[in-house]
Amino acid sequence: MPGPYKLYTLGDAALTIEVGTDFSVGQLQEIIHLKNRLLDAQLVGIKEIISAYNSLTLYIDAYQIYKQPNFQGSPIEWIQLQIRSILDHPCSNKDVPGSLHQIPVCYHESLGTDLQRLAEKKNLPIPKLIDLHSAAVYNIYMIGFTPGFAYMGTVSGDLFTKRKDRPENIEAGSVAVAGWQTGIYPFKSPGGWHVLGRTPITIFDPTKTYPVFWKPGDQVKFVPISLEEYHHLNSLKHVDTHH
């Protein structure tokens, strides 16, 4: 059954479709499917559709809607009616196939700068933390914060930890956890998540046709590698980017 969807405006230039109050894998599929349907409908006046954990947010241009020949009344109400009619129209085949990405991660303590602290806090040995983190297959629920930053979940309850009170500087490629989420920092940036390791994979590459190789709905599995393998893969990357 589709819905029930809650629609609400964010000022005069955006509209959010809320799908449930929590998030789940089933709902993730529904959100992606819904986004595709809205894109297919090619409604005039929608400039962007952002998918998040339990919602889609549409950027609206009221003037584009106003200029349409059959337009009447309030642009945002008008577009809401059109969206409603799409949402209420039942639709089968909800499964949107996503890709599975295997991401090598080096969980060495020199790179996983919060491993020790988290191990002490959780009273678990570091190898156990690594096992817990790399055993699961995660879903990408949302991409935001910076280009390419994927919010993945959900992590094992034993890894659940509140984000840091103060953001710290985090290196590009850092693999980190916060709450039920895990993610990779594509750029060196401030962040409040707990760093468990680092990947040599480039998450954001503007020279590629697809500068980010994943999208919401894809799945991710972390594959532990040694520090030697990490340095080796990193050196290959540097050779690659110079050409």
Partner: peptide, 9 residues
């Protein structure tokens, strides 16, 4: 939960 945000928010 995080949602899409926009300029002016």
């Amino acid at each position: 939960l995080s949602t899409g945000v926009q300029r002016g928010t």
